[in-house]
Write a protein that binds this DNA or RNA. Structure first.
Length: 247
DNA sequence: TATATTTGACCACG
DNA sequence: CGTGGTCAAATATA
């Protein structure tokens, strides 16, 4: 946390806010004429959104404040009857991450940690399923963090990410896999008809094709190649300093 | 072979 | 009893 103590958070927010505002204005200017620029701007705006989300996350982590908007505080000290490892009083908080609709590469949802998906549920009243992830190092290091990811109803490019607990593990540095655009593009092209674009590892089981579009399944976050370098680097660096400063 | 995801079953809680 | 969260076998991927 000392790392960030040297940074004036308010100034950072101010700069980010300004940048985002300008980008918004520019987008509206360009929208009628230059679609490609708008697309690029969408990415820029995503970066701002994510930066704010990360900042938020950082603050919560530093303060150890499990404040959540909307969801209930986990203060009901209930004793787990079956599994002592869950339902502990764990800090939970959520953040929203925007992913550009057309370029919804999973890299943009990557938060720098290794996650393992262990479930997915359709949620009553929600159009999109909720995906459940736990830290990859649960078994080896006993790291109990989990997170849930769900696509927002109104804005399909917006994901709600809810974290439970804090990482107690040591995560090795992410290595940027160099999955080239061509591979990805090609795969998207092949699967574009049935499945949405931008997902890795959409396994096409033989008996799985039946459902045309139940929903876009959620991204897998586990080792995510970085598609958009300049954006991801920001997130990564923030999270790295986050990690080093918190642990 | 090892590791990750998918998916229906299972279970606790309200 | 319905719903959300987790488990675990089957399956996919590297």
């Amino acid at each position: 946390m000392e790392n960030f103590g040297t940074i004036n958070r308010d100034s950072l927010i101010l700069e980010l806010t300004q940048g985002r505002t300008y980008a918004n204005q520019l987008r509206e200017e360009l929208r009628p004429t230059l679609a490609s620029c708008v697309n690029l701007l969408e990415r820029v705006l995503s970066s701002y959104d994510n930066a704010f989300a990360l900042l938020n996350c950082m603050t919560l982590l530093r303060n150890g404040d499990p404040k959540t908007e909307g969801s209930e505080p986990e203060s009901k000290a209930q004793v787990p009857s079956r599994n002592p490892k869950k339902r502990k009083t764990m800090a939970t908080w959520s953040q929203q991450l925007r992913v550009c609709s057309e370029t919804a590469f999973e890299g943009q949802l990557d938060d720098g940690y290794y996650w393992r998906k262990y479930g997915q549920k359709d949620i009553l009243g929600s159009k999109h399923p909720r995906a459940y992830y736990r830290c990859t190092h649960r078994g080896t290091q006993g790291c109990l963090v989990t997170k849930q990811v769900q696509r927002t109803d109104k804005d399909p490019s917006l994901f709600e990410v809810t974290y439970k607990g804090k990482h107690t593990c040591i995560q090795e540095m992410r290595k940027k896999k160099k999955e080239n655009l061509d591979t990805k593009k090609r795969r998207e092209g092949e699967e574009a008809s049935e499945r949405h674009s931008g997902q890795r590892n959409l396994t096409s089981k033989p008996g799985n094709q039946e459902m045309p579009i139940k929903d876009l399944s959620l991204p897998t976050f586990t080792s995510s190649p970085t598609q958009i370098g300049f954006e991801q680097n920001v997130e990564d660096s923030i999270f790295r300093s986050l990690k080093t400063s918190l642990e």
